[in-house]
Design a protein around this nucleic acid. Structure first.
Lengths: 210, 210
DNA sequence: GTCTATAAGGTGATAGAC
DNA sequence: GTCTATCACCTTATAGAC
């Protein structure tokens, strides 16, 4: 979660902008989650992180649930901006960049804890339809980016004429599996192994060999 | 979570067997989790499910944490029995069976909720080293099974001479990613797409073509 | 082994003053 | 917008009787 919540992809970025108060609360929420985990998140802790009281939080949000959905909206937006950076390159390097950023070789502590928090939230999908919608959107976005890169490569003649949607689902599923493995187990060699195997899969499946 | 906790793989199965009381509590814990989710699990609910009181639970376990770790030990044992069934077949069909059981085409409600519960627990890895150890063991087991199948196939000449550990990591990561996608999003077509792509990957990467 | 009763504390949320 | 004060509720966990 970084700081460039500056420009949006869509034009509807102006209407649904959040108020300063909401933005501060969501940022504080994220910091509390990184430190204590989602399951130990409370309105009191958020208020403490803000330097205000619980009632101040409840002025902006009617319930904890509403706050959490708002938090997920921030995540989706951040996601849109973050992965949009990759797609300007050529298909080959774009796909490479995506794989590298989805399965990084190392993770600093804060990113690590951020990933765990997102997994905790993802596991709360039974809580509400709104939760489910947000994570559906995130996965759709990710698969869409990869699919577009592949289709672009096929059109340009750089990739073989594969079924882009299927291969995209495969790549994203593999990356997600590797990412979750990393943050929930002590298997330090696993992510790199997956990345190597995934790269070689991409190479043999997509690259034009004469 | 089914009923055949009958025979164990290892010989140390006799010593660390659980008492009847513990077994009943863990089973009740599982039922409560399937119904209410891990994050709404409480000792009161477990006791209610048992038809006893909280104090009866605390007679068997000193803390909720200890109960949860014990629950995970049951999961690991169940896992050992469950996946051990696949490995008796020939390498080709064994690998096929593993993929099919890791990415099933349909899930009944209870299995679905059980998967979500396991994901919730997995996301609690920051809670303790003991949690982390259990999920490390589960992933190691899974990768080990797949690796063994591949190595067996390579020795028998059925598979090409690939790096079994790497390919095994790839397959398991993909399957895990697909499984988590399924239970946390509304993307009904995704699991089948991953399964098809994964199968074709296995076919082109492993199968001996002359 | 299981019970009742209780302690001590955190939780989400609200009312009303400023 | 933010505060204090409070509510009703649920939680983990223990003491002591049976």
């Amino acid at each position: 979660m970084n700081d460039h919540v500056s420009h949006m992809l869509n034009t509807d970025s102006i209407e649904q902008k959040w108020s300063d108060g909401e933005r501060e609360i969501v940022r504080a929420t994220y910091r509390v989650m990184v430190e204590h985990g989602y399951s130990n998140l409370s309105i009191s802790k958020i208020a403490g992180e803000l330097g205000k009281t619980k009632a101040a939080v409840y002025y902006h949000y009617d319930s904890k649930e509403e706050l959490l959905v708002s938090f997920l909206d921030f995540v989706v937006d951040w996601f849109k901006n973050d992965i949009a950076e990759e797609i300007s390159e050529s298909p080959e390097t774009a796909l490479n960049n995506v794989v590298e950023s989805l399965i990084p070789l190392e993770l600093d502590d804060e990113t690590f804890h951020g990933q765990v928090v997102l997994l905790e939230l993802r596991s709360q999908t039974r809580r509400s339809e709104e939760f489910r919608e947000r994570f559906t959107e995130i996965n759709d976005l990710l698969v869409g980016i990869v699919r577009d890169i592949i289709e672009r490569g096929v059109e340009a003649g750089a990739f073989r004429d594969v079924e882009a949607p299927r291969v995209a689902e495969h790549i994203v599923a593999t990356a997600n599996g590797a990412r979750i493995d990393r943050v929930t187990t002590d298997r330090p060699a696993a992510p790199a192994a997956v990345r190597v195997s995934l790269s070689s899969y991409i190479d043999s499946e997509l690259r034009q060999h004469d």
